[in-house]
Design a protein around this nucleic acid. Structure first.
Length: 828
RNA sequence: GCCGAAGUGGCGGAAUGGCAGACGCGACGGUCUCAAAAACCGUUGGGCUUCACGGCCCGUGUGGGUUCGACUCCCACCUUCGGCACCA
């Protein structure tokens, strides 16, 4: 629609609804009055509502509005329910896009980032949300990353940070290492390039120490979907670690440890497999097998992760020439190396039980290794196996354990292993430690220095922040650009004053977002990251919301941080976010993900310009359930816009004064008012914004009809309806609500009023419609008083002339009566 | 392959054992207008039938089942989306 052809609906009297004018007016007024500043000392109960802060990409898109407008509505509702609500906003400002933009523009990433912050803050303000901007945090500003560095020092001090040479994920495009969580199907989570492994000295956080506790979601109200994604990611497996004997000349190790979930199949071991990267693989290889094994390991390392982990691929592997001894039966079995065994899981070794494990079975078939079943199984006739056997049956070929049923087998074998010293029952997790080093420049420098005399020396707390230089080169070289900045690199040892070298890697940006919720409560504190008193007053977050894409990164890291902070005595709780809601994703009008390349991006700014922020907010909430998302169809917003106009006309219209307090019409008006309050309250509590708005639309339509009927209406009841309508509009469409509140002659501000209460005595209908069915089919409707006695309902139903033809000549078997709902006559 | 969510008019969706399609978009008809747009009012799941009021049948992915009654609960299957996937 063009600007020229669009005309505004006219009100019968008075001024038209001009969203842009009233939105500008009230945003300025709210800011001038500090309406949304959150006091720390306030007698009301606290409510900390938080929406994931945006990355400083440069532009807010409708997806951000979809995340923030409903959460703003929920926060405003809480405030109207008498809570002191903290609803802050900030910017996730470190990260690669800034650096890439800087390389392109030959400018510093800080310029790009802070320019984007300015723009996005204005876009956010146009939404009219109740963000308390005095608490804004920007993770790339020194007074924030100073404390990110402080957290690193604390974790280092408590043994939760360590440096290690390890094979780590490498993204060739972004020229940096990645955390496990950032690798999706063998590709870089950010840029999509195929990743490979590199051996590098890197910093890690010991998140694995919390693996078990991170599986505990009691006390949290999170969706079961996110819970199961985290459980899946942590990947707990119960089993046993067993020790197989090793006797290879010239090798010190006397045993190899192996993790298995099926210790009960240990008598079925016919071979043994080490991961190509396992430290013993080359050591134990016999001279005549060395060339083949070396070649295999090299080939394995060159493969991309996608090639290597493809499940379709045929098994490969080579024999090392060495043997290990099964401690249970003394059997000597050949040791192979094969890339289906992962170095990073368990102990990097597998005991091959081809009869009971499909992967081992395929390997044994390929290399003609022996297959010994150790369970008599219902699916097995005693002949040659065509696939591995599943669980079940009783043990055979297992010496003293023969005859043990499946259910007791694992326990019996583990007990025996522990008695004999062969191994022990144990639990393994898929979760690995969190790799936090990044070889890029636009992040918080890791605050340590390397000194020839004193080794790794943490930067003293009082010397923080370790500032990023303002004139670094950004060419990605695989090493941090900070390495080439002489002024940054060279420093002195905090202990002895010797010349020393700074750590040039920076911290993973997920570290910034692991604690930002704690900084909002005390954002200007320059003594500590936040004060203990304010932490006690505000934390943890009561209601958090954001997209599912952070299920196993941000949300897992933040939980780890909180537990570590608790154990370090910094906070007194172990979970950052009590309630979590995940909104869906907004798609383009074509149902595809919005992207510049598809040309289906809807910018919120244009929609706001055309329809007003209130209409855009309400439309996003009206589209469907918040957790669902869906396509943004720009033509639908007219429905919302028309509705807001109807509401405007309704409130601004003159109503002739009348006093009809006891009239049936008045009772009906009040019933509708209170019934709407009941519906809207229930829906907003459950974040069902779409049905809440539908209820308000119905109410508006009913009131419009009543006004247009030109029948006299009781003035007090009408005013109650108007007040209630505006109060219920206030959280969703804050600007028009404020304007109408003022025009109704009520005192500023509508946003400091209480949410209306409904009186259940008034919501009852005088007559209810009761459906009459015959054998479950609708035949008639009766108008009865609520709670009408069964006999009455039954007699009226049977007397109905619409029912008569359907029961004529038939026998009435029974009559079911659900009060106020239906009568069902069952005939034969 | 495994785990989870979902499938309802032309479209977004509502109803979670009791009147399917609330609310909104779109479409069609009307009012206003010289005309159009906007706005407002009305109709709008499909089929059959009636001059008409109305009546009847079918209908919530498919096939079964439980129930007086099923979009809703149970079983099997199909499709779509999300997560995990050689994790021993």
């Amino acid at each position: 629609m063009s600007e020229q052809t669009q005309t505004k609906p006219r009100t019968p009297r008075g001024e038209r609804y001009e969203p842009r004018a009233i939105e500008r007016k009230w945003q300025a007024r709210w800011q001038a009055d500090g309406l949304y500043l959150t006091p720390d000392d306030d007698p009301r109960p606290k409510w900390y509502a938080l929406t994931m802060f945006p990355y400083t990409s440069g532009n807010l898109h409708v997806g951000h509005w979809f995340a923030m407008a409903p959460s703003d509505t929920a926060a405003r509702y809480r405030r109207m329910r008498g809570y002191n609500v903290l609803f802050p906003m900030g910017f996730d400002a470190f990260g690669l896009p800034a650096e890439n933009a800087a390389i392109k523009e030959q400018a510093h990433p800080a310029q790009w980032t802070f320019r984007n912050v300015e723009r996005m803050r204005e876009q956010l303000k146009s939404m009219g949300a109740m963000f308390d901007w005095s608490r804004e945090v920007i993770t790339a500003s020194p007074d924030y990353y100073r404390w990110t560095q402080w957290w690193f020092l604390k974790l280092l001090e408590h043994g939760l940070a360590y440096k290690q040479n390890a094979p780590v994920w490498w993204c060739p495009n972004d020229q940096t290492v990645l955390a496990n969580e950032q690798v999706i199907d063998g590709h870089c989570e950010r840029c999509g390039a195929a990743v490979s492994k590199r051996d590098l000295d890197q910093w890690f956080f010991r998140i694995t120490r919390y693996a078990e506790e991170l599986l505990d979601f009691s006390g949290l109200q999170w969706s079961s979907q996110i819970e199961s994604m985290q459980r899946n990611w942590i990947g707990r497996s119960e089993g046993a670690e067993l020790r197989f004997g090793l006797d290879v000349p010239g090798v010190d190790a006397r045993e190899v440890r192996v993790f298995t979930t099926r210790p009960d199949t240990v008598y079925g071991v016919t071979f043994f497999v080490l991961a190509p990267e396992h430290p013993l693989t080359l050591q134990i290889t016999t001279p005549e097998r060395a060339a083949a094994v070396r070649a295999y390991i090299d080939a394995a390392r060159k493969q991309t992760e996608i090639e290597r982990t493809s499940t379709e691929r045929e098994k490969t592997g080579v024999f090392t020439g060495a043997y290990v001894t099964n401690p249970f039966n003394g059997a000597r079995v050949p040791v192979w190396t094969a890339d289906y065994v992962l170095a990073t899981y368990g102990t990097g070794a597998v005991m091959g039980v081809p009869a009971h494990d499909q992967r081992d079975f395929e390997f044994a078939k390929k290399f003609a290794l022996e297959i010994i079943p150790v369970f008599r199984h219902a699916d097995w006739d005693g002949g040659e196996l065509t696939s591995a056997l599943g669980h079940g049956g009783t043990m055979i070929n297992s010496g003293p354990f023969d005859g043990t049923p499946d259910e007791e087998a694992v326990g019996a074998v583990v007990r025996y292993a522990e008695e004999q010293g062969f191994g022990r029952g144990t639990v393994t997790y898929r979760l690995r430690d969190w790799l936090i080093s990044r070889q890029r420049m636009w992040g918080a420098p890791i605050p340590v220095v390397y000194c020839d005399s004193h080794g790794i020396v943490p930067v003293p707390e009082e010397d923080l922040p370790v500032l990023l230089p303002e004139d670094a080169e950004f060419r990605p070289t695989g090493e941090s650009p900070l390495t080439y900045h002489e002024g940054f690199l060279h420093t002195t040892c905090p202990i002895g004053g010797e010349p020393a070298r700074r750590e040039t890697d920076t911290l993973d940006t997920f570290m910034c977002s692991s604690w930002y919720q704690m900084r909002y409560i005390d954002p200007h504190n320059d003594e500590r990251p936040f004060s203990r008193e304010l932490a006690r007053a505000w934390l943890p977050v009561d209601q958090y919301s954001g997209g599912t894409e952070h299920a196993v990164m941000h949300l897992l890291y933040a939980r780890f941080f909180t537990k570590a902070a608790r154990d370090m005595g910094i906070v007194e709780f172990g979970e950052p976010y009590i309630r979590l809601f995940n909104q869906g994703q907004i798609l383009g009008p074509d149902g595809q993900r919005m992207s510049k390349s598809r040309g289906n991006v809807i910018a919120p700014d244009g929609q706001v310009e055309q329809w007003g922020a209130d209409a855009v907010r309400a439309y996003l909430m009206f589209l469907g359930p918040w957790d669902q998302g869906g396509p943004y169809d720009p033509s639908g917003i007219t429905g919302i816009y028309r509705w807001l106009n109807r509401a405007w006309n309704l409130v601004t219209a003159e109503m002739p004064p009348a006093s009809l307090a006891d009239a049936p019409e008045t009772r009906e008006l009040r019933r509708r008012t209170h019934h709407t309050i009941e519906r809207a309250t229930r829906d907003i509590e459950l974040f069902r914004f779409n049905t809440m708005l539908a209820a308000l639309m119905e109410f508006t339509n009913e009131l419009t009809k009543l006004r247009e009927s030109r029948r006299p209406v009781d003035a007090a009841a009408w005013r109650e309806a108007m007040r209630s309508l505006i109060l219920m509009l206030a959280p969703s469409v804050p600007h028009i609500a404020e304007e109408l509140w003022e025009r109704l002659g009520e005192p500023y501000s509508v946003h400091t009023q209480r949410w209306p209460e409904f009186d259940s005595a008034l919501t009852a209908q005088e007559r209810v419609e009761v459906a009459v069915q015959v054998n479950g089919k609708l035949r008639d409707r009766l108008a009865l008083a609520p709670g009408a006695p069964e006999a009455l309902a039954r007699d009226q139903a049977l007397a109905s002339e619409r029912v008569a033809p359907h029961i004529a000549g038939k026998q009435i078997v029974r009559v079911i009566y659900v009060p106020d709902r239906l009568v069902n006559v069952v005939v034969r």
